[in-house]
Amino acid sequence: MLEIFLFALAMMYSPGPVNMLSLFAGVSDYGWRALRFCAGVGVAMCLLFIVTGYLGSSFMTEALQGVAALAGGSYIAYLALKIIKASFQVQKANNTPQNLTFVAGFLMQLTNPKAMVAVLPIVTVQFPNAHVEGAMILLMSMMLGAMAGGAPASYFVAGNRLKQAVLNPTIMSWLQRVMGVMLLFLAVEFLISGLSMLAQGDNLLSKLAVKV
């Protein structure tokens, strides 16, 4: 059982688009409203664990993962461009794109390929090894979902503690630009990954069609 939480901890608390946005929100003095974004992330992960745990991983095909990656990459690119645009405007204490809502966190995590990278090994390998089944799947999903929501929340708190060092308007502008460029790179990675998954899914369908 401990291995499940250690693996989830390593995957969920490593730097990623969700955690980076939360860190930036803390640094930018966005306010504690950002925690609703973190809650959306946690609920999305809980849902992924529940659905995958009870229905099995077979429903999460390469094509479906590809579509999710493309959607996630497009949304991250949109946020990145908004952040870069904001960096060239008059700086305010909370000059952060007003998109860190519960729904934004939920959808962003739901379409995050990294989320499925964390979910699938746990559900397909570690759950059976730990004899997690029945009602335990629901309980474990809720606990892991809470861990997932805690990851961006911890990044937000860390950024909030550091904000006094970087509230200078010039520093904030460059921080926004760097953050935007990093998110754009992540968005491109998501889009490439999504196209690759779709291509693999099409190849699989073609092979099955030939066999039939």
Rank of each mutant, 00 (worst) to 15 (best):
M1Y: 12
M1W: 11
E3N: 15
E3K: 13
F7S: 06
L9W: 07
M12G: 06
P15Q: 10
P17M: 02
N19W: 07
L23Q: 08
L23T: 00
D29F: 00
R33S: 09
R33P: 00
A34R: 06
R36P: 01
R36I: 02
C38T: 03
A39D: 09
A44Q: 07
A44Y: 10
M45G: 01
F49P: 06
G56D: 06
F59Q: 07
F59K: 07
T61I: 06
A63N: 02
L64M: 14
Q65W: 10
Y75S: 01
K82S: 12
I84V: 10
I84P: 05
A86Q: 10
K92Q: 15
N94F: 04
N95S: 14
T96G: 00
A104P: 03
K114E: 01
A118D: 07
T124D: 15
V132E: 07
L139M: 12
A148R: 03
A151P: 03
A153C: 02
V157A: 13
N160C: 12
N160V: 02
M172S: 09
Q176D: 15
V178S: 13
V178T: 14
M179N: 13
G180E: 07
V181E: 13
M182S: 15
L183F: 07
V188H: 02
L191A: 15
S196T: 10
L198C: 11
G201D: 12
D202L: 14
N203M: 03
L208G: 04
K211W: 08
